[in-house]
Nucleic acid binder design. Structure first.
Lengths: 244, 244
DNA sequence: AAGAATTTGTTCGTATGTATG
DNA sequence: GCATACATACGAACAAATTCT
């Protein structure tokens, strides 16, 4: 076993077990090199790996040593993005994945949501309405996107499943990176927004009524309508398989 | 921007764009250090990061330089495992995630499967039957597990969604690591196997008939029955929300 | 506000074990 | 079996950055 791997595992264990908490500091490189009886380059290679995994961050000149970071899905995001590139994941597959996870979150939310969470969802849709604007050309695309994210955050929070939350979040970002340019360029942006808002309102109503299967079906339909125009013709049938 | 980060990005870009294919070799460290005009340690730190991301592998003494690897979900697996530990993901959440993705894959498979893929599923269930054995105590737990994996592989292959395939695969391994000991220790292993086989047969029949929603519902029920005993009492209701 | 002290970033030289041909 | 080239690992040295006095 490599020396740097031993160092990685020791520090990783300390962090994941909770012996080291976010915000705490690692010893300096020179101290680690004494404590662990390895050379400085070995310590540095180990720190690079831990940094790549999103567990620590080190800055030049920081006298307190590397900082233990709170968990972030950055590493997950990175490996999924890599997956999407090297496996050439199609937009259709990504959207399909989102349709599945998002509708599951909504199904659960319809069952488990509190009144506060429902209010949160309503607030988000209200913000979407404000961003879409009333007069032609007054739409704030960016604010609309933020409100949309807030809505979905409220939903996955109500679903109670952090894994679903993180995965949908990661995949949403990957999807948006692929097509945000085309969405921005659409000349009927405002019409798209209005339709999207209406869809969201229907979903919320179903969640309020506690009808999970209906809410889930509506959400799949909404996502299909929104993203299908950007998906290859040959893949839309696989998406429609989720709609019935 | 750090020197090693530039090196990481350059090599990463070459790999993800396809300019470097799996099996091909990177220049040796000394050559990279000349080509990129950086020191040796910088090259090494970059290679460590790329290795942590599962993109390359280097061995001491290899005169051909680091090898570009085919994509593997190892990095994804690693970051999800980290996520499960530091976010303290419960078994309930993990099982719920599998219920959602697996049943979605089955729903799609019922629509899109070919005859060959259906035959593959039948073969896997046949292998499960063989592993469960006919006489008491003759069960081969490991072979049963392998056959079960083969079944789900055939299903996700038929679903046509590689992202679902990889995510279910990763989460299954995490779940099994958490409870395989308890499953092995169960004294009614063979009864569990027989019930599982029956569930699989029902799912296959629904897939054969093209009834996706039924197949999906059956698969959720099967997974619930199999894993619920290991899930905390307080979490089973969230699992049952997926059953209706 | 400015400088001292310490840390990380980076380079380089050296020694050692290992795989290839 | 041997020579060669390689990765692994160590440590000294200097530059750049940050914090603290």
């Amino acid at each position: 076993m490599r020396a740097y791997e031993r160092v990685v595992e020791q520090i990783e264990e300390a962090i994941e077990s909770g012996a080291l908490s976010p915000g705490e500091r690692l010893p300096s490189e020179r101290e680690l090199m004494v404590q662990l009886a390895v050379g400085r380059s070995t310590v540095r290679e180990a720190l690079r790996v831990l940094q790549a995994r999103g567990l620590v961050r080190s800055r030049p000149g920081d006298p307190h040593g590397a900082e233990v970071l709170p968990f972030s899905p950055a590493a997950l995001h990175k490996s999924m993005t890599t997956l999407a590139r090297v496996e050439q994941l199609s937009l259709g597959e990504l959207v399909q994945f989102r349709m599945v996870l998002d509708s599951a979150a909504i199904l659960l939310a319809a069952r488990l949501r509190t009144e506060e969470q429902l209010a949160e969802m309503n607030k988000a849709v209200e913000a979407m309405r404000a961003a879409a604007g009333t007069e032609p050309g007054a739409a704030d695309t960016e604010a609309f996107g933020r409100a949309d994210v807030a809505f979905h955050d409220a939903v996955v929070a109500a679903s109670g499943n952090k894994l679903i939350q993180i995965c949908t979040d990661v995949v949403r970002q990957i999807v948006l990176r692929q097509i945000s340019a085309r969405i921005d360029a659409a000349d009927d942006r405002q019409a798209l927004m209005r339709r999207s808002i209406q869809h969201h309102e229907e979903v919320i109503e179903a969640i309020r009524a506690g009808d999970g299967p209906l809410a889930a079906r509506l959400s799949r339909r909404a996502m299909y309508d929104y993203y299908a125009p950007y998906v290859k013709e040959s893949e839309t049938s696989a998406l429609r398989a989720l709609l019935e």
